[in-house]
Design a protein around this nucleic acid. Structure first.
Lengths: 146, 146
DNA sequence: GTAGATGCAAATCTTTTGCTCGCCC
DNA sequence: GGGCGAGCAAAAGATTTGCATCTAC
């Protein structure tokens, strides 16, 4: 898994350094969509010498290479996750927890909407903000619940 | 249209001032989803004395009252628009232009996804990033093209 | 060896806040 | 009249940048 990402990096012509691979490792072990500062604090636990600007530079670099994805909760900071099988987010309005889901029907609809407007989908950002309602019989492919 | 928004404000117990109504007017006349600074620059053209903090305070106030909506392009600043009939955004990857659309099927899918995960949809954020592909026969309700 | 990466400090940019004065209801 | 809003200046928080040094290839 980590080797896979490292390969993606070298394929993208990204020079691999101790800091960068530590940042990748940190992201892979984080299942909570950390912001840059949180990535930094986790990384610095293992390598005292790593710095926040390096984290920012690496995250931007990785994002540009399509290796990680920037996501946007409305909290004023960018959050990051490795690009995995494409999924979207449902955010619990009461506690902020992020649930991931995957739904083919949804993607088809997006494609057809874009097509109707003369466009082809390159990417999409979808966040549902929801509130628990008791019943819960998950039929869509729910990847993870944090 | 503007009267309508002003009424929404007073209904929400928002005290109306010259600055606030100027900000509302500015938003209504902007069809490009301006960020706070752009709202400020447009407003200051008409009232030299208005200040940026006032714009921020007003925008936050309006957002809290459900009168305007904050939207999040991945550019690090919050952008705003009056709450109109619910719609979503398609962003042209090449020139950044924002197209708005409305699609009932999409909403139904979101509802059912949330329901399957035990949630009820409170709100959603959807952005499609797309690239023109020549053909363009818009069947979905496209509200505006900027 | 050299282009590119890092750390540090400081700048930049967006957004928020403290405070005093002024205005809406 | 009194509380809430506005402007100003400054703080706070997130992110970026300049520069000297170090390192991967």
């Amino acid at each position: 898994m980590q080797a896979e990402l490292l390969k993606k990096c070298t394929d993208a012509g990204i020079r691999m350094t101790a800091q960068r691979s530590l940042i990748i490792e940190t992201l892979l072990e984080s299942d909570d969509h950390p912001d840059a500062d949180r990535v930094y604090r986790r990384a610095v636990e293992r390598d005292q010498s790593i710095s926040l600007p390096t984290v920012y530079r690496a995250l931007n670099l990785f994002e540009g290479a399509g290796i990680i994805k920037k996501i946007n909760m409305n909290d004023g900071k960018a959050r990051f996750e490795p690009v995995r099988n494409d999924h979207d987010h449902l955010i619990d309005a009461d506690n902020g927890h992020i649930h991931e889901f995957q739904n083919k029907e949804l993607k088809k609809i997006l494609d057809s909407i874009a097509k109707e407007m003369g466009y082809e989908v390159i990417e999409h950002r979808i966040e549902i903000v929801g509130r628990r309602n008791g019943e819960s019989n998950c039929d869509c492919i729910q990847i993870k619940v944090y």
